[in-house]
Simulated assay, not measured.
Amino acid sequence: MHQSATPSVRSSIAPLTQLDQEVDQPKKIKLTSREKEVLMWSSVGKSSWEIARIISCTEAGVNYHFCNIRRKFGVRSRWIALVKALEQGLIRMP
């Protein structure tokens, strides 16, 4: 019989280590209370201008919070960040 020079598939599969299991789980995101508040108002359809009036800050301040939120989630859209925050249980729909 001819022996193959390549190892079998079964022998090349290593058992999962703790490090491998941690890679599969999403990174735990921490949001400030103000970031959560901004996302909550966004979830009910409020614009940056409206959120600024509600929480008594500037529109630029609200956009600053959205910038930090998007950076923390590694996304480019506030809507995707909102979905991820809801999925991870960081905020709830009112």
Score class of each variant (00 low, 15 high):
25 Q>D: 10
24 D>R: 13
83 V>K: 12
8 S>C: 14
11 S>F: 06
20 D>E: 14
24 D>N: 08
90 L>K: 03
78 R>G: 07
48 S>K: 05
55 I>Y: 01
2 H>C: 05
70 R>P: 03
87 E>I: 06
81 A>T: 02
83 V>A: 11
21 Q>L: 15
45 G>N: 05
33 S>E: 15
66 F>M: 06
54 I>W: 00
59 E>L: 08
11 S>K: 12
71 R>Q: 11
40 M>W: 07
33 S>Q: 14
51 I>E: 00
70 R>K: 15
37 E>I: 03
33 S>N: 13
83 V>P: 00
87 E>C: 06
63 N>C: 08
89 G>E: 06
57 C>L: 09
76 R>E: 09
32 T>A: 02
39 L>R: 05
56 S>Y: 09
75 V>H: 04
23 V>M: 13
71 R>A: 08
1 M>Q: 11
13 I>K: 13
87 E>T: 07
6 T>E: 14
89 G>A: 06
23 V>E: 10
7 P>A: 13
59 E>V: 08
31 L>A: 05
79 W>T: 09
52 A>R: 08
63 N>D: 10
8 S>V: 06
56 S>M: 09
34 R>V: 11
74 G>S: 04
18 Q>R: 13
71 R>T: 07
78 R>E: 10
68 N>R: 13
8 S>E: 12
93 M>D: 02
7 P>F: 08
66 F>S: 02
30 K>V: 15
92 R>Y: 10
14 A>L: 15
44 V>I: 15
93 M>N: 06
4 S>Q: 10
85 A>E: 04
11 S>P: 03
63 N>S: 10
73 F>V: 00
61 G>R: 04
72 K>R: 06
32 T>M: 01
57 C>Y: 07
29 I>K: 05
42 S>V: 04
87 E>F: 04
20 D>G: 09
90 L>D: 03
15 P>C: 10
76 R>W: 09
17 T>P: 08
77 S>F: 06
37 E>C: 06
14 A>N: 11
78 R>P: 06
9 V>Y: 12
75 V>D: 03
